[in-house]
Design a binder for these strands. Structure first.
Lengths: 333, 333
DNA sequence: TTGAAAGCGCTAACAA
DNA sequence: TTGTTAGCGCTTTCAA
């Protein structure tokens, strides 16, 4: 009882015009008489016709899809809800163009080989890179494939070759640092992210640019975007500087760990030590005290990233975009 | 300098056999001489040939892709990291079959129409439904499309028509309730999820099945899987039963809210009130005290879901799977 | 403005 | 075991 799917021929027959004309209507060409257009549209809805993408793709050598490549499973995006915001924005934007989003994970070498193969095979019209690191072998594969690519978040060292949209990591970190200073805090430390990520490098830059020479190296402790890492880093910071009165942590998840370390160490927050996080993720309101943090406009970043990619596909000029962050004051600082 | 992608013809030429033979090798058919196979493989890697999926798809009328449909943005999966676990498992499994995962969101009517259109157009070989609700109009579209579908998490009311893999919500809730009873708690309430979700309905069932008639209706308060909702629900529960000594909350995020309400109300946790959550998400360790909770084997559920779908595509018999949960004891109970 | 027709790259049926 | 060939459904050029 599974009737065959109607093809463009069925529509042509039902509307009394040729396949060519049907195709023109379907693709929004203008050189079609109103009568023909109407007839075709009616036939389309009568027959329930839906274009066969494979056939179209074979002919046009465009696939109508974009691949989203997720690098680095340990990266922050995988640990919090930001990620789904991002995907939602991407699918929405693409859907407007009747394009679809294919998802690939590039966690290990095998994964990356698959992605490279996929791109080389021309299975996608464009690539959306998520949390791709400096030196990631994936980048080479992307470039060799000649598939237009944009990144969500800067790709360190490739900023000029891969357009990107990102939150203003540096500016956000500056906001955080300045806020702590304005609150009268004087002995401020920082728990950074991995320095080969933009969130790691740029947030550290922003922080040090505000505090200047007061930031000794030992006031910067490296975290890995995990909660346990944040906890360890906080303990280290307290060992280095027992009289610390504030800390800026490069992610909310790490900040949750830091909060635990501070509690263990008997410090009150924000009384003894003020804590500012980064992200404004769901975790920020689950901690006690709730985190004062820097909100990234993640949905906007994602939308902008997709906009860039679409512009690139349309062969327009594109320019990377950096979107402003916002200080969200809660209870921890 | 963008040389045209090599086709099967180029490979045939380079290896000195016919297109047909190349195709047979590529598709793993057995009736090919070893010599021919070797020649073809060499030619493939020499030319850098990658199959054109559109052409293959046009011929075979299979697309080599599966669509993952995400319903209900407010659903728990969107609020925590579970979701990425799920996607990772799905892409991995599919990659083994050289299939790809397309993502669609079905949040509003427009979205659903797009999904329906996509399915009707035969753009995917199968569908993976995530957090689809009872009565979701999407279900009808899926059925009408005749595209094989499986669900991650039971689809209430459609359990017999849409195969699924899920965590044992009922059993997990039982574990939680039994644990609280074993700890000597006697006045136990529950904050449920929305009752049209399996996590809402089944966790409530499991809970009440342990506590029996001691559960009056007013000891069950409905939450909406948000933190704010959990907080509100906890306040209500405390109003109804000021001497409550334990609460089971259907998600960690809501439990975080409940913890806040308890703090506001001056109750100590677990001293005055024990709290058990559900999920074992990242939030569970960010709260203070850290949550005792029920862990869902999310990765396994996802893998199993994909396994079901693949079996379905291979026209095998499939049976829904329910995977065991685990009690994770931390500090809140 | 429209129709006719070629051909995108592949698989599979058939013939050898 | 292999080669030949038809044709999947579409877009687009060319001619009318």
């Amino acid at each position: 009882m599974t009737r065959k799917r109607p093809t463009i021929n069925d529509v042509a027959e039902a509307s009394g015009v040729s396949r060519g004309t049907v195709s023109r209507v379907l693709n929004g060409q203008t050189n079609v008489s109103l009568a023909a257009e109407l007839a075709v549209r009616r036939a389309v809805s009568e027959t329930g016709y839906v274009v066969n993408r494979a056939a179209r793709s074979l002919k046009t050598s465009r696939t109508g899809s974009v691949v989203m490549v997720l690098s680095e499973p340990q990266e922050r995006l995988f640990e919090d809800p930001n990620f789904s915001v991002l995907m939602r924005a991407a699918t929405n934007r693409l859907a407007e163009r009747d394009m679809s989003l294919v998802l690939m994970i590039a966690g290990d070498d095998g994964d990356r080989e698959r992605v490279a193969h996929y791109l080389r095979g021309g299975h996608a019209d464009g690539a959306l890179l998520i949390s791709t690191h400096e030196g990631d072998p994936l980048l080479e594969a992307v470039e060799r494939s000649h598939v237009p690519a944009v990144a969500c978040g800067a790709v360190l060292g490739h900023e000029s070759v891969i357009p990107y949209a990102a939150a203003d990591d540096r500016g956000g970190a500056r906001q955080a640092a300045q806020y702590l200073v304005d609150q009268g805090r004087r002995r401020i430390g920082m728990i950074t992210g991995p320095l080969d990520t933009p969130g790691g490098a740029l947030r550290m830059e922003g922080f040090t640019s505000v505090l200047g020479r007061k930031v000794t190296k030992r006031k910067l402790v490296y975290g890995d975007y995990t909660q346990a890492g944040g906890e360890r880093a906080m303990h280290e910071l307290l060992r280095n500087f027992p009289d610390l009165d504030a800390v800026f942590v490069a992610s909310d998840l790490m900040a949750a760990g830091a909060l635990q370390a501070l509690r263990t160490a008997g410090r009150r927050v924000p009384g003894d030590v003020a804590v500012v996080g980064f992200d404004d993720s769901a975790i920020a309101t689950a901690t006690n005290p709730m985190l004062t943090t820097i909100r990234q406009p993640l949905a906007e970043v994602a939308e902008e990233t997709v906009r860039l990619l679409i512009a690139l596909l349309d062969e327009q000029q594109v320019e990377s975009a950096v979107l402003p962050t916002e200080l969200i004051v809660r209870d921890s600082a």
